[in-house]
Amino acid sequence: MKLLLIEDELELRKSIRHFLELEGNIVEVAADFAKAEDKTSGYDYDCVLVDITLPGGNGLEIIRQLKANKSRAGIIIISAKNSLDDKVKGLDLGADDYLPKPFHLSELNARIKALMRRNKFAGEKTIVVNEIEIVPDERKVLVNKKEVVLTGKEYDLLLYFISNQNRVLSKSSVAEHLWGDHVDRLDSLDFIYSHIKNLRKKLLEKGCEDYIHTIYGIGYNFKTNT
């Protein structure tokens, strides 16, 4: 996938770029409004990640231009300005998602992949990872062609793992993905453990390989390349 990252903070730009390149994407960057305008008018991207507050202009303006040019790029707003106004405005202008800073890179990655799946008009309707097959439209999971009945949270968990294969996911990032972050985290992150335990059990029952590796005290890694 070809991505454009519009972000003025150098270190954040470096991190995001690095992480997304690990996923095999081509990531181009723009650090200010003029550069962003340049890139978006000259090239096509699968997905554009845009910060709202930019030196030299407003990220919302970039979205407006993309939409005016009938661009088919998916647009995700990454903003520190966690204000409802901007969110509503951005989504109204045609942005596909809004991710307030700070966020986990794995979360951003999962959102990009989800967006790409939604935006794909033809082609694969399913995600296939070895013996696992996911049909996102129906929230259905098959292992070795046999359906695995998962709860909502277990399904979300599996999709998150598959979006971030071979990445170490901290417990807090998993928790945030499943429950959002607008409430204080409840005492223990042990809920995740019980969900993961159940998910793993259900997958193993259908003869799936044990991909979920626990990194003690830290989090998990869904390892598909051993």
Partner: peptide, 16 residues
Amino acid sequence: QTPLAVMQSKIDLLFQ
């Protein structure tokens, strides 16, 4: 939020 985002992203990378 911006420095927090930077810190978060670096931590995520370190984990990898």
